[in-house]
């Protein structure tokens, strides 16, 4: 039997939303808060966008008058705020199981092995990931090397100083896609060809204008129902089936189209919409069991880091309400 530790609030995920919630709880005097993070550092997705001279500032802080920022700087700021609190941080702690009725999570980490945490309230701030080729529904074909997600692109370019491709094709056309095109260009690749199954890019005109400083990607809206990845060992192109046109490339990035990391909620029988994977939330981001809340990009859709941070703070207020009612 594994040991159990008790907290007043447990937050799963130390990205902007989870940290926002943790800081708000501290400021409002909630003691005994645990912040559980599966990776070895805090900051979530923004921390992958490294600060670099001449690099692309992909984050905007609207609360400070719309100043462009490096994601890493934002993650750093979050870390500073967090260090001023007494929130207990659990790094490298992967939650493997939740029991919704018992308000219990079970996690694994290198120091303690397997531990259970219980709390009066639990906030799921698990973020989101990018849709796989099959989840996009219109991308089929081969499965060679160098079909990356944006996250992998960042790990290679910013994390390891490698250029993952020289002639990129980007699938998806939201802000993440245009930011990826800019990052690739700055890292030494050619302007990307951005392909999406819509007539106009998802990314707004002003956002695209912003990224034109670094790269001028070529948008291809494909009416085609199906686009096929080509390449036996590494990606060598994509084929637009209806036009029967081959766009050559040496790497493909699947960008954006975020899908909530709601697996734990599903596993614990909290209500989740399928196949969208959006957790079903009521008033104040409450999940289908009392005491369970959701914050940030796990709610679905695509939100910037700052939105998630403020959303985390807002959910923290709802959690405090819940705590006062139940005590």
């Amino acid at each position: 039997m594994n040991s159990t530790k008790h907290f007043s609030v447990v937050i799963i995920g130390a990205g902007p939303a989870g940290i926002g919630a943790a800081i708000a709880l501290y400021k409002r005097g909630v003691k005994s808060v645990a912040l559980v993070e599966r990776s070895d550092k805090i900051g979530g997705i923004p921390s992958l966008y490294k600060k670099k001279k001449g690099g692309v500032r992909t984050f905007i802080r609207w609360s400070r008058g719309g100043i462009p920022f490096f994601g890493e700087d934002y993650a750093h700021w979050l870390g500073e705020q967090l260090s001023k609190t007494d929130v207990q941080l659990w790094l490298q702690s992967q939650v493997i199981e939740i029991e919704a009725k018992e308000n219990r999570i079970t996690l694994v980490n290198p120091d303690e092995g397997r531990v259970s945490l219980t709390a009066a309230a639990i906030i799921m701030a698990c973020g989101s990931r990018e849709e796989t080729a099959s989840e996009r529904g219109w991308l089929t074909g081969a499965r060679p090397m160098r079909v990356f997600f944006t996250k992998q692109l960042l790990q290679l370019i910013d994390g390891n100083g490698l250029l993952p491709m020289r002639n990129p094709v980007i699938i998806g056309s939201d802000l993440i896609a245009y930011a990826a095109a800019a990052k690739l260009k700055v890292a030494g690749a050619a302007d990307a060809i951005i392909v999406d199954n819509r007539r106009r890019p998802k990314c707004s005109y002003f956002e695209r204008l912003y990224f034109r400083r670094w790269s001028q990607p070529n948008f291809r809206g494909v009416a085609a129902k199906s686009v096929e990845v080509v390449g036996s060992k590494t990606a060598s192109g994509i084929r637009l089936s209806r036009e029967d046109e081959l766009i050559p490339c040496d790497g493909i990035v699947l960008c954006g189209e975020l899908i909530p990391n709601s697996e734990l909620a599903l596993q614990g029988n909290l209500k989740v919409e399928l196949p969208s994977r959006k957790p079903v939330v009521g008033r104040d981001s409450q999940l289908s069991e009392p005491g369970w809340f959701a914050a940030g990009n796990i709610l679905g859709g695509f939100h910037g880091a700052e939105w998630c941070y403020f959303n985390g703070r807002r959910v923290a207020r709802a959690v405090i309400n819940h705590l006062s009612q139940s005590s």
């Binding site: 060679p144 090397m145 160098r146 290679l156 490698l162 250029l163 993952p164 491709m165 020289r166 002639n167 030494g188 690749a189 050619a190 060992k233 590494t234 040496d250 790497g251």
Partner: peptide, 19 residues
């Protein structure tokens, strides 16, 4: 991914950044 010729990133060219 599956042995030589399926490297994670392309080999650097002599020209460096050139496509």
């Amino acid at each position: 991914k599956r042995g030589p010729e399926s490297e994670i990133v392309p080999a650097p060219t002599a020209a460096g950044n050139e496509g």
